[in-house]
């Protein structure tokens, strides 16, 4: 007993002050990419061709990068001779629509909160049922981590629950395999309305590294309506937390550093 109390003292208090204070992220963290199409030679398509998930397209307006497909690898930045694409350490990337995830320049807007009645219902208490539908356990692990003392999701009134019947919505990971399609649908149907769906990770948004396989359905939206998309492969726990809190209008005034302030060279 004394040993436990002593450990309690030395192990200390470990919960982060997020969102009141900005998160500490490693310098090499690849968060929100920025694009500078003015650097692109007209006939260059190196990044477009290098992208494993076809997240980058190029037209007369320049480059467009779909965060919902992006694996946050370095294939495009490595291939680009001009440094037109760079990753910043900006972790905030969640969006309410698929369309909002497409970046041409600058950063995507802060996530829009739920409206009216939904916000009133869920703002202070949101119970989610997690469904992994082909997730590789990367996204699952970094969702799970929100439950640890470091993030302590419970302090925001957000909780992962064991049954869809107890849930206000689903948090889906994975590309939705053919073999999980029915289970996902049934789990969704079992959640009492009104309900929300959150797609976490490139897989759940677009199929991710498995997009286009015969065995998968390229994301949660193929089966259920999605209210929030959280990009990453996997998204950093802070990215997920930002998305959840933004949806619930719990972020408060934008106290953290301005978006894009922390450019990393890579």
């Amino acid at each position: 007993m004394w040993k436990i109390l002593l450990s309690r003292l030395t192990q200390g208090h470990r919960t982060v002050a997020y969102p009141d204070e900005p998160p500490s992220l490693p310098p090499r963290f690849r968060g929100h990419p920025t694009i500078d199409s003015t650097r692109c030679p007209e006939d260059c398509r190196q990044c477009v061709d290098s992208c494993p998930t076809d997240a980058i397209t190029k037209d007369e307006r320049g480059l467009a990068l779909d965060l919902g497909r992006c694996l946050f690898c370095t294939d495009c930045t490595d291939s680009c001779p001009e440094g037109a694409i760079r990753f910043t350490t900006e972790h905030r990337m969640a969006a309410r629509t698929r369309h909002d995830l497409v970046v041409r320049s600058g950063m995507i807007d802060r996530v829009r909160a739920l409206d009216g009645k939904m916000l009133r219902l869920f703002r202070r208490s949101l119970k989610l049922r997690q469904v992994s539908a082909g997730g590789c356990n990367g996204c699952e692990a970094d969702v799970n981590v929100l439950g640890t003392i470091v993030f302590d999701l419970g302090r925001f009134g957000i909780q992962m629950v064991a049954s869809p019947r107890h849930a206000d919505g689903l948090l889906v990971t994975g590309p939705v395999t053919e073999n999980m399609k029915l289970a996902l649908k049934k789990t969704y149907d079992a959640v009492p309305p009104p309900k929300i769906v959150i797609a976490v990770g490139a897989c759940a948004i677009s199929g991710g590294p498995h997009a286009g396989h015969d065995e998968v359905h390229d994301g949660a939206a193929s089966v259920v309506p999605v209210d929030l998309f959280i990009p990453g492969c996997p998204p950093h726990p802070f990215t997920i937390l930002d998305g959840l809190l933004g949806l619930l209008d719990r972020l408060g005034p934008d106290r953290t550093a301005p978006r894009g302030a922390q450019l990393t060279e890579r």
Binding site: S132, M180, H210
Partner: peptide, 20 residues
């Protein structure tokens, strides 16, 4: 339930998705 058909996609590689 998690079958994503990865092995089948590796055939013909290595390609740009292989490492991922």
């Amino acid at each position: 339930y998690q079958h994503r058909g990865v092995e089948r996609k590796l055939v013909g590689g290595p390609g740009k998705r292989t490492i991922h």
